[in-house]
Design a protein around this nucleic acid. Structure first.
Lengths: 193, 193
DNA sequence: AGAGAACTGTAGCGACCGCTACAAAACGGG
DNA sequence: CCCGTTTTGTAGCGGTCGCTACAGTTCTCT
């Protein structure tokens, strides 16, 4: 038998880059195989089909780039740090700008709306984690009972998604950190109960 | 001679709806003609080609839906009103959610990146109008000299784009207005100099 | 009524889409 | 060494893409 002549992990990293830059629908098998330096049958033997390759790319993305909430003394600190983490990541010139989960499946043709739904579910999960972190502080007595966790989470989720768009439109790290810091200026009034 | 057998304006409105929902690349001529109830030659005779049809749709969108800054006593009031205007528009169930300019050309294949660039230029123009409005207040003495108009504009542009994403993910008018109001909570500290 | 111009539907152009059949090539184990 | 398995490159499947040639229909104008 003959071993695979290309590095599967490397090929997957290239696929991630392509999907990240152009999105799911608008990245063709031809462009993928060309960027990987392999032929279609090799791609299909190694990854199944386009959809499963994308799923693996998303998995790789989540494993290597996506930053979640890290432990912190209070929700404000945790969310503020997350925003700054994302600012740095979204503008990192080592990879395409912005977030794969937010912008890879924005425009999709009827028929492959499952991908859109999957990405949307992941965004909802992120938003839910923000709300949960706020709720945690409310239950711990660090925030007033009157604070609306959903409203806070929706605001910061929107800020994150806006940072993604700004990054894709060319904003640098400092500009994105400025957005993050500006959003945190609302924190005291937003969580005043 | 024979007059056109379909209503050009109505057909254009349908095209806008399609592009608004699915985006530029992922909306096919076939789906457009089907939705319009006409055949390809009629579409091409009336609108030129897909790109020009999209341009006209964008023009119609700007004419009927896009809300810009309205006159107000100060920049904070103007921007706050804009955010609430957009919240109402983005979540209006009478048309597809969100903003055509922000999300119709997110994912695009190499070759038709002109559309992406055109939409990006419009977003930059909106951001520039926000900065100009802030600068106006600085020069009028209503805001401190130390305020950074670009930073303020980038923040509120990001909030607008985040509201767009939230709307497309299902957020209703009240949720979006919550985002708008939360963003304005940062205004005093953001423009404190 | 007849001529002519504009629009209409059919049908199909070449190019590309995701995907795969097939045979030649490259290595493993005996 | 030669067999057998797996991967490779070529070449092409049916389908859809944006777009259009063409002929028939429909209506205006004289």
């Amino acid at each position: 038998m003959t071993r695979r002549a290309f590095d599967r992990d490397h090929a997957l990293a290239i696929a991630l880059r392509e999907f990240w830059t152009h999105g799911y629908e608008t990245t063709s098998i031809a462009s993928l195989t060309k960027a990987m330096g392999i032929n279609p049958p090799s791609l299909y033997a190694a990854f199944g089909d386009k959809r499963r390759l994308f799923d693996e790319a998303v998995e790789l993305y989540l494993r290597t780039h996506a930053t979640g909430l890290r432990p912190a003394a209070d929700a404000g600190t945790a969310i503020g740090r997350l925003l700054r983490d994302l600012a740095a990541d979204y503008a990192d010139p080592a990879h395409p700008p912005g977030c794969l989960i937010i912008s890879a499946a924005t425009n999709c043709a009827p028929g492959s709306e499952e991908v859109l739904a999957a990405m949307r579910a992941m965004r909802e999960a992120t938003k839910a984690s923000l709300a949960a972190r706020v709720r945690e502080d409310i239950e711990a007595g660090l925030l007033a009972q009157g604070v609306d966790p959903e409203a806070v989470a929706t605001f910061y989720a929107a800020v994150i998604q806006g940072m993604n768009q700004q990054a894709r439109d060319g904003a640098g790290r400092k500009a994105l950190e400025g957005v993050a810091d500006a959003a945190m200026l609302a924190w005291p009034a937003l969580t005043a109960g």
